[in-house]
Amino acid sequence: MSNILLAGFGGQGILFAGKQLVLAGMKQGKEVSWLPSYGPEMRGGTCNCSVIIEDEPIGSPLVIKPDILLAFNGPSYEKFAPNIVTGGKLFVDSSLVNFEGARDDIEIYPIPATTLANDNGLTGLANVIMLGYIVKKTGIFDAEYFENSLISGIPASKAHMIDFNKKALKLGFEYEG
């Protein structure tokens, strides 16, 4: 069972990233739900989305105490890291978030996703790098299965993005800190 919260700035692809996790879960026959924040924040401010992947039918679609938090910016880290369950996992874009003095009762997985994206000609794909990283580190999905799931969702009109996404995922899969 996974209660996942993804949070960051509007425009970082938070909702897209959440949707990829849910799609991959659905195709495996899991119960899944995806709930976005839909206030004015989605137009530039902070933005988040609740993703639940379970074996049992889902009750509340709202993730309040995440098992896994993906923090893509400082305000999201400040706001949501205290809510992670004890023993939960924090994935954090270390190029944007200062997480000094973070909780010691959770597992922390920092990755400079935005810097990696920029350095590899993948600006805007920090979210996909992060997805690769969490898939690998949590084992929530098989890496190859997840890549196929994500790629198959790319419409023909955006076929030129396939290689960029594969490259971004690979960076995430292979990142070792």
Binding site: V22, S33, L35
Partner: peptide, 10 residues
């Protein structure tokens, strides 16, 4: 309600 309208499920 807003949650049901906004959320995605299979």
């Amino acid at each position: 309600d807003g949650a049901l309208g906004q959320m995605m499920e299979p």
